[in-house]
Amino acid sequence: MPPVDIGDRLRSLPGGSAVALKLDPREYADHYFAVLNATLRDVGSETNAHTVYVAVTSPAAFVWTLAQALDVPRERISFVDAISHIMMNYSNPLENATYVDSPRALEEIMLRVEYLLRKFPHPRSIVVIDSVNSLAIHNPPELLSEFFHILLNNLKSRSVLTLVLETSDEEQSGVEQMLNLVVDETIDVARAGR
């Protein structure tokens, strides 16, 4: 059976789904770009949905550059940037981003996501969390579990498609086990067609 296209998989999901997108660290750049392409261009463009991108791994400015390369218009994406402040990389803040002091301020991340969803309401909004691994570097597992439990349930009740990026090799890590408890489905990008 041929691999399923990531965009097709995401499109087929019911509203309010929470999905872990598993990226192989050995092919991270390829996988990451495939996910962005599927999310922002395929699904986002088709439904004209607004995407709230939670940037914890790379600053919003970097992701915005990639989004621009994919011809994503500014009005269709906004960022919660939780990494620029601690990377001392806040000198040129983006207009379509809101900045949280650090990845440890998990409640603030939740509230900024809430703020952007209210500011840019859309029946099929998308939230991308990039990534669970970066959040795990800065937060203890119990706190992270509580964060995901509350955030994903809240987004589910509002029919928001939530995509959680996860970098993982063959062996299942504690982070992956925790994520499995809160998402509806895991898409292994290495096995999916692109």
């Binding site: 409640e107 509230l111 703020y115 209210r118 119990e142 706190l143 509580e146 964060f147 509350i150």
Partner: peptide, 14 residues
């Protein structure tokens, strides 16, 4: 926030 005060549960992490 500019649209008003928003609240979320204070995470305890056990």
């Amino acid at each position: 926030t500019p649209i008003g005060i928003l609240m979320a549960p204070h995470l305890k992490g056990g």
